[in-house]
């Protein structure tokens, strides 16, 4: 009797152990895939295409964009450009669900996207040209 119970129980115990293992491995697999997905999130950057020589902004230098990136003359911006043509808080770029947007912060000289002045929020993508003051940025993503 005891031998019989033991015989049946050993299969049950091994089965449950493997179910636990399977569950743990499944979660770890999801976790690994999560890490990969996180790296796949699209990232954007701004490349300086043209700037006056007096500003110490060399052509081709790249600014990586965060979830929110502010551009302006004041020290609390992410990208600080000390140029009289740029307002204290000039424009902001933000990433939402993998899409990049630009918003003009009512700057004096305005922000231009592909030559057109921005009045409200506009979506931008790879290859667009942004003009802020005397500086021309190209969006790379």
């Amino acid at each position: 009797m005891i031998g019989y119970v033991g015989f049946v129980m050993k299969f049950i115990v091994i089965a449950i152990i493997y179910i636990i293992l399977f569950r743990i491995i499944k979660i770890m697999y999801l976790d690994l895939r999560g890490i990969k997905d996180r790296k796949d999130v699209k990232s954007f950057a701004l490349e300086v295409q043209d700037a006056p020589d007096s500003l110490e902004l060399s052509k081709g230098s790249v600014f990586p964009l965060h979830t929110v990136t502010n551009i302006g003359r004041k020290d609390d911006n992410h990208i600080i450009i000390n140029d009289p043509f740029i307002s204290a808080n000039h424009a902001t770029l933000f990433i939402e669900k993998g899409r990049l947007f630009i918003k003009d912060l009512e700057s004096t000289n305005g922000t231009y996207l592909n030559g057109n002045k921005i009045y409200d929020v506009e979506e931008i993508s790879d290859g667009d040209v942004i003009e802020i003051g005397r500086i021309i940025f190209k969006v790379i993503g």
């Binding site: 129980m9 049950i12 115990v13 449950i16 636990i20 979660i27």
Partner: peptide
Amino acid sequence: KTILKSIYLVTLLM
């Protein structure tokens, strides 16, 4: 929690 419950079950069974 499900994993832990199965662990309790298998421990008690053993």
